[in-house]
Design a binder for these strands. Structure first.
Lengths: 395, 395
DNA sequence: TTGTACGCGTTATCAG
DNA sequence: CTGATAACGCGTACAA
C-alpha cells in the first residue's frame, strides 16, 4: 500500500520541464508494483504480466516510442520532445519500470561499485576504530547513492592480493581504496597492472607516485602531544610504535622524534609493538623496566595506551602523577578510562568521504574535487599531567 | 611474470577427467594476460587483440566448438566429450579468458552478492564490536569466494529502508542479512515484499516467522553472570539495559530477571540506556544515587560497563569491593580496564559464518546446512568480587 | 528520433 | 550422447 502511494506521488511529480538539460530521473518504488493480486490500476495497462519485471521495451511500446528514446529520457539526455518525455515517464511509472542495473553494467561496462579490502588481525578487527568510521565516510561520499560499496575482509597479505584480483577479474568494482599503506608498498603497482582505478589512503606527505593520495596530517597531533607533555615538565618521553612497516606507524614515530628535536629534548626510547593491547602492555613493561624510565609515553593508538595505563596501575604507578599517557584515535571509550585518556583525534569519516568522492570522480573520468580535510585534534584529558618526578634530565 | 607462471600451472592442470560430473573450472589469473607488449606466446594465437578482453565467442572459435560447449565446460555440466573439454580449456587458458561476471549476472538474473546494512549511531559505530566481527564471519562463510558482500552504512531507520529497497531495485544483492531485530519488527515483511531473500540474525528463541533465524543464546551468558554474582554474595543486582526495543536488549534483560527469580533474589532496578558510554555513565549515577544502591550491576554491553567503572571511580567507590561490574561483548579492551572487566563473550565470527552459509544456500535454493554455534562464554576478570557491603538484603 | 547491432553468457531446441 | 543454432536478458550507442 505504501508503495502505491509513493507511486501516485511519483506520477504526479512527472510534469515534464522544457527540454533544457534534464536531470536523470529517479523513481522510488520497488521492482514489482503488483505482486499477488492484479492491482486495480494495472487493469488499465496494455498487457499486465504480473510476476515479470517490465523492460525498457515494454515501456517504449506503451509510450509509443523507441527504446532509445526511453533510454534518453531516463539518462536525462537532451533531444527528446517534452511530449515524448512525458509519455515515457508516464509509461514507466505505470509499469513500475526501473532500468536494470545488470543490463546497464553489461552495456556500459561498469559496475557502479567501489571496493574496499579490510585487512586486520582478528584481535584488532573489533577494536580498530578506523574501518567502521572510514566506511561510514565512504557511504557519505557515495551519497548520490549510485555507487555501492563492495567489501572484503581478509586476514593476511596473500588473501588481500587475491581480493584485489577478484575485484578486477569479476569486475566487482570499478575502483578500489588502498589503505594501510606500507613502506615500499607494491600494491599500487599491482593494482595498476590489474587495471583497477585506486585511491590511496595514507598520511599526508606520502608520495607513492601515480595514484592520487588522500591523506591527513596525523603527525601534527603527535607533535602537539609532545609539546603538551613538554609544557607539563616532561623530559623523558618515550614512544610505543604500532606495527612496523606501515606508513602511518612511521609517520607517527617521526613526528614524535621531530618534536623532541625541535624542543631540544633527548630522544627517548622507542619500542615497537603491533597495535594490540597485549603488545602495548608488554612495551610499557619494557619501558618502565628501564634504568631511567620515561615519565611520559606516547602510544601509536588508544588500545595500546589503555593497556599501558593498566600496566602502570598494576605496578602501583599513578597516572598521570607518575606516568603520563597519550593515545591516538580517540576511541569512544577514551573518556571512560581511569583516568580519561588524552589522545589525538582525526576525522576519519571526513577522510572516507573525501576518498570516496575522489575515487568516484576518477572512475568516471572527471576531475576529482579538491579535498579539504579538517585538521587533526588533540584532546587533553586526565591521563597527562605534571610529572611528580623531579625530572631534571637525569636522576 | 607471476601471472605467466600461474598460467602455465593452470594449463598443466587441465587434464580432462572422464566425463563424470565435473567441477566448475576456476582459473586464477588477471583479466588480461598480455597488456603492453605482445607476449611471445600470443603471437601463436589466432587473432591477437591485445587490449581487449576475450569473449566466450573467441574461445569457442579458437577451440573450434560452439559457445554453448564452452559454457558447458566452464560450468562443469556433463555432455561434453573429453576432447572438446580439453580444447576449450586450452583455448581459454591461451586467451586468458574469464566468463564475464556482468554478462553472467544478466543472463542468470543473479548477482552473486549478498547485502548487509549496518545501522548505527555515529558514536557506537566505532566501538561496537559486532559488525566488524560479523563481517569477518560472513567472509568466511562466503569462503568459496563466489559471492561478494555489498555493504551499506546508514544512520537512521529511514535510510535503512531505503538501503534495502536499493538492494532490491538495483539488484545489488541476491539476499540480505537482517540484524538488530526489533520487537514487532516490520522489516522481515518488507523484505518479503521486496522479494529479497533474508536471513535474520537475532538471539536464539526469536520467532519472527517466515525467514530463517540464526541466533545465539546470549542470555545464557547473562544468566551465568547473575549466578556468579550471587555466588559472591551479592543480593542487590541491577541491570543497565541497552536501547529499548531491540530483541537482544530485551533478551538480556529477561535473562537477568529470570536468573534473579531462579535464585530467589529481589528483582533489582533496571535503567534503560542506549549502549553508549555516556548513557552508561548516566545510568550508573542513577543507580548509585538510589537509597539502596546495588552492589553489582550487569550492563548490556562493555562500553556502558566501562563507563560505569569510571563513574564508580569518580565517586570514590572501589571496584569490585564496593561495586561489581559485568559487561557484555568482551571487547579487546576488556582485559585492560582497571580492574579488568568481567564480561560475556559470544562468538560473533562463527555467527556471521553460519548466517552467510545459510543465506547463500537459500539464495541458491538449497537446503541450508544445520547451524551449530559455539556456546556463549562467561569471562571472569577483576571487576567482580565479593561484596564488602554486609549485604543482608536491606541496610 | 528511430532502427539495429552490440555487449556476453545462458539455455532451450533441434539435428547428427 | 554430443554439439550446434538461435533466442533471450536489457540497455547503450551509432548510424540513418
Amino acid at each position: 500500500m505504501m508503495w502505491v502511494n509513493r507511486l501516485r506521488r511519483a506520477r504526479r511529480r512527472a510534469q515534464p520541464d522544457r527540454n533544457i538539460v534534464i536531470k536523470p530521473v529517479y523513481i522510488d518504488y520497488p521492482c514489482e508494483v503488483s505482486t499477488a493480486e492484479p492491482s486495480p490500476t494495472s487493469t488499465a495497462g496494455v498487457e499486465s504480466s504480473p510476476s515479470k519485471r517490465a523492460t525498457i521495451g515494454d515501456v517504449a511500446a506503451r509510450a509509443g516510442v523507441s527504446k532509445s528514446t526511453v533510454s534518453f529520457v531516463v539518462n536525462g539526455r537532451p533531444g527528446v520532445s517534452a511530449t515524448s518525455r512525458d509519455r515515457v515517464l508516464r509509461a514507466a511509472a505505470a509499469l513500475g519500470w526501473q532500468p536494470s542495473a545488470r543490463a546497464r553494467a553489461l552495456s556500459r561496462n561498469r559496475t557502479q561499485a567501489v571496493g574496499l579490502v579490510i585487512r586486520r588481525d582478528p584481535e584488532l578487527l573489533s577494536t580498530d576504530p578506523f574501518f567502521p568510521q572510514f566506511m561510514a565516510g565512504i557511504e557519505i561520499g557515495l551519497a548520490a547513492r549510485e555507487y555501492s560499496l563492495v567489501l572484503q575482509v581478509v586476514g593476511d597479505e596473500q588473501s588481500e592480493r587475491a581480493a584485489y584480483r577478484r575485484f578486477a577479474r569479476e569486475s566487482r568494482a570499478d575502483g578500489v581504496f588502498l589503505t594501510d599503506l606500507r613502506i615500499h608498498d607494491t600494491r599500487p603497482e599491482e593494482l595498476r597492472e590489474l587495471g583497477l582505478t585506486a585511491v590511496i589512503v595514507a598520511p599526508e606527505g606520502t608520495e607513492p607516485g601515480g595514484d592520487p593520495t588522500i591523506g591527513m596530517n596525523d603527525d601534527a597531533g603527535v607533535r602537539r602531544a609532545v609539546h603538551h607533555l613538554h609544557s607539563l615538565g616532561h623530559q623523558h618521553i618515550a614512544h610505543v610504535m604500532g606495527t612496523a612497516g606501515y606508513v602511518h606507524t612511521e609517520a607517527r614515530r617521526r613526528a614524535w622524534q621531530g618534536a623532541l628535536e625541535e624542543l631540544g629534548l633527548p630522544i627517548g626510547t622507542v619500542v615497537t609493538a603491533d597495535f594490540t593491547g597485549a603488545s602495548g602492555a608488554r612495551a610499557t613493561h619494557e619501558l618502565l623496566d628501564l634504568p631511567q624510565p620515561p615519565t611520559a609515553i606516547v602510544y601509536g593508538n588508544d588500545l595500546m595506551a589503555i593497556a599501558g595505563i593498566s600496566v602502570a596501575a598494576d605496578r602501583g604507578l599513578r597516572v598521570p602523577d607518575d606516568l603520563s599517557v597519550v593515545g591516538f584515535d580517540d576511541i569512544p571509550l577514551a573518556p571512560y578510562t581511569v583516568p580519561p585518556l588524552t589522545t589525538v583525534r582525526q576525522n576519519v569519516v571526513a577522510w572516507g568521504t573525501a576518498a570516496a568522492q575522489t575515487l568516484v570522480a576518477l572512475v568516471e573520468g572527471k576531475q576529482p574535487p579538491p579535498v579539504d580535510l579538517p585538521p587533526v585534534e588533540f584532546i587533553v584529558r586526565g591521563s597527562t599531567g605534571r610529572t611528580s618526578t623531579r625530572d631534571t634530565g637525569s636522576r
